[in-house]
Design a protein around this nucleic acid. Structure first.
Length: 191
DNA sequence: GATTGGATCGCCT
DNA sequence: GGCGATCCAATCG
């Protein structure tokens, strides 16, 4: 399991380091896991696309808190998106997990998603929340439990990482804070 | 209290 | 590639 100190970095530095790691979530005795293959970084006041860009609000306050905590928000009236809170306490930051390569519990994922094709299970932030059974109730959860954590996985060297502008935002498009494992088949869309 | 605009997805062409 | 679904949170009056 990754230690707390691993998460005490600015989001744009932590995000690429999460690629290749394994996200594990157990709910209702069902264990699911997947390799992180695509992420996005969200920081503070200088990052206008971030929920914390305008300071602390009831929703964004969790981004200002201790690292290694789950930040889940509701998006577009349909989906949840899962982030990992990072950086020092008091400094806002979070890494959005955008895509996973399914590993354990694929049967559960297929049932929750209503799809059998592996590429349809976790190739997007909303999809992976549905597949992994992550919802608003998980907002604020610690990521240092047996049920919910991130562990060491495949080593991803810098040469294997591609980056570009983040998806679905209209501000701070100049920041290349979307990161993915080059050539991986499970990312949400092409760069 | 009302309005507006999303860190999306799936299905259609 | 385009669009409709659908609702929360932030912002403004």
């Amino acid at each position: 399991m990754l230690k707390k100190s691993f998460y005490n970095l600015p989001a744009s530095e932590l995000a690429p380091k999460l690629l290749g790691k394994i996200l594990v979530h157990k709910s209702g005795n069902k264990i699911c896991s997947g390799k992180i293959v695509e992420v996005e970084a969200y920081e503070g006041a200088h990052d206008l696309a971030s929920h914390s860009a305008r300071g602390e609000t009831p929703r964004s306050k969790i981004m200002f808190g201790p690292s290694g905590v789950s930040y889940v928000y509701f998006s577009y009236g349909f989906h949840c998106c899962f982030n990992v809170v990072c950086d020092k306490t008091g400094v806002p930051g979070a890494v959005l997990i955008r895509a996973l390569e399914p590993m354990d519990g694929i049967k559960h994922m297929q049932k929750r998603r209503g799809k059998t094709e592996l590429k349809d299970l976790c190739s997007g932030p909303g999809k992976l929340c549905q597949a992994m059974d992550i919802n608003l109730k998980n907002n604020g959860d610690s990521l240092f439990t047996e049920e919910f954590h991130i562990q060491r996985g495949e080593r991803v060297t810098p040469e294997k990482i591609i980056s570009g502008p983040r998806i679905g935002i209209s501000k701070s498009l100049d920041l290349p804070w979307r990161f993915a494992i080059a050539g991986n088949a499970f990312i949400s869309r092409k760069f």
